[in-house]
Design a protein around this nucleic acid. Structure first.
Lengths: 146, 146
DNA sequence: TTGGATGTAACTCTTAACATTACATCAAAT
DNA sequence: ATTTGATGTAATGTTAAGAGTTACATCCAA
């Protein structure tokens, strides 16, 4: 398990949808071209975002739209929309139960606290980053290239 | 890339070495039995810890020993000893350079800041956790089972 | 010199991320 | 109503990285 590419693709899509508002109909094919991913990957990502209530998708006719204010959407919401298991499993623990060694018996418990702290730190940081802030950064980059 | 099992195995080994001090000679076979890993995995992990200056290993005769105070060894040191590339690469970014779309051209830059923040948060948390604190937790668990 | 240990290279196995194909479903436009 | 272009998703294929294993050179103390 890891923090996969899907998260980056999702941010890409959300910014794209935001920028295209009122300009173009955002289809999965269009997003596939912009991201370089397969349209099915896009549809899966968008599907997760839809279930999380971040976008609406017009079935049949096509087209995705944001259904929340970008300043209300955090990176953690985006990540959670794509990874049902959340951050647990990000850090691997070796299986060594059922052994006589007292260390083997307790290492799981010992590691739980540090790993929980790490996950909490990641979560907090992700919650502090909004889609709006990333859109702002994007606009700055576009306006003054180099 | 991920925070792999190796890190957990390394902590397991370090606690084992600490507890075995003056009691038994800690060989890779012994650690392999306790962790449930292959002896080669253990030797690779120990090799990393050795290069990082955390343990010494007696060649030929065998046996590993801590060569730093557990309160001076942080989880980040342990992790870094095993993952030469550090935390970069923990989060995947899709490749979409060389496309006309301005979002594709800038998404990498836009994502860099958030991802750097996440990595820094992980690093800080890992630096705040010492081997000593994990040894203390282990002792507490052993003394009062259940 | 023998025995048990480490240090690594090379290879295989396994799993999960990622990509692709295929097709059912849907809704607007003609 | 049929066509057209879109979404939703199952099923499968591909690939890369983690994990495991074998093999063997090297080392040191008894």
């Amino acid at each position: 398990m890891q923090i996969s590419m899907k998260c980056s693709v999702a941010v890409h899509c959300l910014i794209f949808i935001h920028e295209a508002k009122g300009v173009a109909k955002v289809t999965s094919n269009l997003l596939a071209q912009s991201t370089g991913c397969n349209p099915v990957i896009i549809r899966n990502v968008i599907s997760g975002l839809k279930k999380a209530g971040l976008v609406t998708v017009a079935r049949g006719t096509g087209g995705a739209q944001l259904c929340a204010d970008p300043s209300e959407i955090t990176l953690y919401q985006i990540y959670s929309a794509l990874e049902p298991d959340g951050l647990s499993g990000l850090i691997g623990i070796h299986a060594c139960q059922g052994r006589k060694c007292p260390i083997a018996q307790n290492i799981g418990q010992v590691l739980q606290k540090p790993y929980q702290q790490i996950e909490d730190a990641i979560k907090q940081t992700m919650e502090s980053i909004t889609l709006q802030s990333m859109i702002d950064d994007f606009h700055q980059l576009v306006q003054k290239p180099e």
